[in-house]
């Protein structure tokens, strides 16, 4: 409170242009870089399938991966229907842990 009052008395704005600039730039670049290549999205999708397939059987055709953007952030949204979870993988973990 006291600091806020002092700042206001000294005529300083709580916003810092340097930090504003960096934050705006960071956001604009997330958007710029994200919109560059569908090729990259495809590769990401393929690698996701590879990684997940070690643990479970997934429906590759029903899988959706996309970037969701709003003013504040960009998120990677993935919807991956699971057909079956692999029992043998679970077993392998148990064996490794108990040995």
């Amino acid at each position: 409170m006291l600091w806020e009052l002092l700042y206001r008395l000294l005529g300083r704005n709580s916003s810092n242009p340097r930090i504003d600039a960096k934050e705006r730039l960071r956001l604009v670049l997330v958007h710029d870089r994200a919109s560059i290549s569908p090729y990259l999205m495809n590769r990401l999708k393929e690698e996701l399938i590879q990684a997940i397939s070690k643990y479970m059987v997934i429906d590759e055709d029903g899988m959706e991966v996309c970037l969701d953007q709003d003013d504040q952030e960009v998120a990677l949204i993935a919807s991956i229907p699971i057909k079956m979870i692999k029992r043998d993988y679970m077993d392998n973990i148990h064996i490794r842990e108990s040995s």
């Binding site: 340097r18 930090i19 600039a21």
Partner: peptide
């Protein structure tokens, strides 16, 4: 202007 916090500094730009 960098010192007064009015524009980005070298490290901000290199970082990004």
């Amino acid at each position: 202007m960098v010192k007064d916090g009015n524009m980005m500094d070298i490290e901000d730009i290199v970082d990004i």
